[in-house]
Structures are given as C-alpha cells and as structure tokens.
C-alpha cells in the first residue's frame, strides 16, 4: 500500500512501521482518550496530534497521521482533513525552532514588520524558510492573544513578548545554544505575562 499525500509527501511503509509512540507519550494519549464518553474517542484527535507532532520531529508526516488514525480507530482521511484545517499542525518538515511572529493589527502598529525583517536578515532566510542547519523556521501568523505585549513571537509553548531587536538576539542565542526541538507540549514554557 502506497499513497501520495499533498503531492510531495510519499508514504513509506518502513517508516510507518517504525512510527510508534514512546511509553510516556502513549500514557499521555491514553489519559486524553479517557476524557470523553464511551465511543467518542475521536474527540481526542486534536490533542493527540499535538503529542504526535512533538514526538515525531515537529511535523505530521503521512506515516504519523496513519499511525494516529490506527490508535484512535478512525480512517486516515479523518486525520488528514483535520490536520490540514488547523494552522498549528505542520504538514511539511520545519526547523527545530519554529518562530511564529504575530503580524495582526495590534502587533503591526507596534512594529511586527520590523521584527520579521530583522529575523530575516539575522538568520539569512525569508519568511516561510528554514535555516540550512535546520535550526530555525520563520513563520508569520495571526493574533496570538498577546496584543497588549506587542510585538511578540511564539516558539513552542513559550510566548516572547514586548520584543526589541536586542530581545530577539537573546532568544535566538538561547535557542541555538540549547539546540533542541521546541514543541507546544513543552513543559519548560516561560510565563512571560
């Protein structure tokens, strides 16, 4: 069985066979499924996709989605139609640190465009692109609920607010030296409010 998802992603049977949650992730998934009434386990799909994205390299490959479908006992298409609807699921590989810069009104009037330009110059890649070392991807997004602390960017679970160029330097330096993948499910978020 081999299917083609979104043109560029080719389904790989061997990769699918190797796609298995760690025990810890599996426990989280089982805990999530228990939140819903009997037979309503499809409700777990969005939270489980977050766990899967964090577990399997920061994006949802066709194999990962197929695996999630098998766990929730639903069709792969049900996973794919959801994953492609919501903006937080990456259907293509991204850098270890996805820098999501808000550019909606409140951030825009306080310099979001300057932050994007600064990041592009600093990292040498454009919005939507990943640095050659696979460390950073720049993405522009819509309002993240930090309008009072604009401009801002999100990376994984962390909100970085009241940005200045100096702050951006510090953030990039920190993430680069840590060198690890950042996910929405991370526990070491910064409480920045």
């Amino acid at each position: 069985m081999s299917s083609q998802v979104k043109g560029t992603q080719v389904f790989n049977d061997a990769k699918r066979a190797g796609t298995v949650f760690s025990d810890e992730a599996m426990q989280t998934v089982q805990k999530i499924i228990k939140r819903y009434p009997e037979g309503k386990h499809k409700s777990a799909l969005l939270p489980v996709l977050h766990v899967a994205q964090a577990e399997f390299g920061g994006w949802l490959s066709p194999e990962t989605m197929d695996y999630v479908a098998s766990i929730l006992k639903i069709q792969p298409i049900e996973v794919y139609e959801v994953a492609s609807f919501y903006s937080m699921y990456n259907l293509k590989p991204v850098g270890k640190c996805l820098l999501e810069v808000c550019r909606t009104s409140s951030c825009w009037v306080r310099g979001a465009e300057d932050i994007v330009n600064y990041l592009e110059k600093k990292l040498g890649v454009k919005e939507g692109e990943t640095t050659p070392d696979g460390m950073f991807t720049i993405k522009t997004v819509e309002c993240l609920g930090s309008c009072g602390t604009a401009p801002m960017l999100q990376c994984g679970a962390s909100f970085h607010e009241n940005l200045t160029f100096e702050k951006v330097d510090t953030i990039i330096e920190q993430y680069r030296s840590q060198g690890k993948q950042r996910s929405y499910t991370d526990l070491d978020y910064k409480n920045t409010l």
Partner: peptide, 27 residues
C-alpha cells in the same frame, strides 16, 4: 471538568464550530 486544546483556528471560537472541533473534526 477537562481541558481540551484546539489546533489553531479563529473560527473555532464560533460556538458550533467549537463543538465540531471538540468532537475531533474540522471547525
């Protein structure tokens, strides 16, 4: 009482889209 996280979609603030999303579907 349980907490459910969404997947990033403004439309899920509309209450019936929210319910669809909570059922594991597109919003």
């Amino acid at each position: 009482c349980y907490v459910q996280v969404g997947g990033g979609a403004y439309i899920c603030g509309e209450e019936t889209a929210l319910l669809e999303s909570l059922e594991g579907k597109r919003g």
